[in-house]
């Protein structure tokens, strides 16, 4: 079971709303290499893992990914606070707004809804762990691309933290 801690793993404090950037960053919530998919991947794979240490790594990294989903969601939430209709239109946020207003919906930047088709749970530990290594690199690359697109230091700071965690997770998945 899980118990919620009423704090973010890393702080998010964004002064300036930016709906265009929110529409990009939401991809790390529900996109193909996002945190929701990461959590679901590891937390699905762990049951048939071959030894207790691998069950531990999958459980603990899967749990941390839920915390990262919360950080990404907090970034999107704070970037879409108090928007005027003019800002929504000018930021290209109107196509999201029409379906979700400013509610958090797990989707890719392209608008494709979250799908479990983005990950596997094969029951074969070599296959699963190799997918997990690639998944951490894909998430790291997505954060690198977000850093190419984001100027605001309030946004870049938590994104850099999330990027570094992908590198640590990659390291841990390579050790079993």
């Amino acid at each position: 079971m899980w118990q919620y801690k009423k704090k973010l793993e890393y702080p998010v404090n964004i002064k300036n709303p930016n709906p265009a950037l929110a529409k990009v960053i939401i991809t790390q919530f529900g996109g193909p290499d996002g945190e929701l998919g990461a959590a679901m991947r590891y937390l699905s794979q762990r049951y048939t893992a071959p030894c207790n240490e691998v069950k531990a790594i999958l459980s603990d990294i899967g749990t941390e990914e839920l915390g990262h989903m919360e950080i990404v969601s907090a970034i999107v939430y704070q970037l879409t606070r108090n928007l005027s209709i003019k800002e929504i239109k000018e930021g290209g946020f109107d196509t999201y707004f029409v379906d979700h207003t400013t509610g958090l919906y797990p989707q890719a930047a392209s608008g494709m809804p979250f799908s479990a088709a983005t990950f596997q749970s094969t029951g074969d530990p070599i296959t699963d762990l190799t997918e997990d290594l690639a998944a951490e690199q894909k998430a790291r690359l997505t954060y690198d691309n977000i850093l190419r697109l984001a100027d605001d230091p309030d946004v870049r700071d938590p994104i850099k933290f999330l990027r570094e965690r992908e590198i640590v997770h990659f390291q841990r998945f390579g050790e079993p």
Partner: peptide
């Protein structure tokens, strides 16, 4: 709160490392 986060993060790091060591 910063102290809570800092030590909480160190615990997570140690936890993941200890899973494989």
């Amino acid at each position: 709160l910063k102290s809570v986060r800092m030590h909480g993060f160190a615990v997570i790091e140690a936890q993941l490392f200890l899973d494989s060591h």
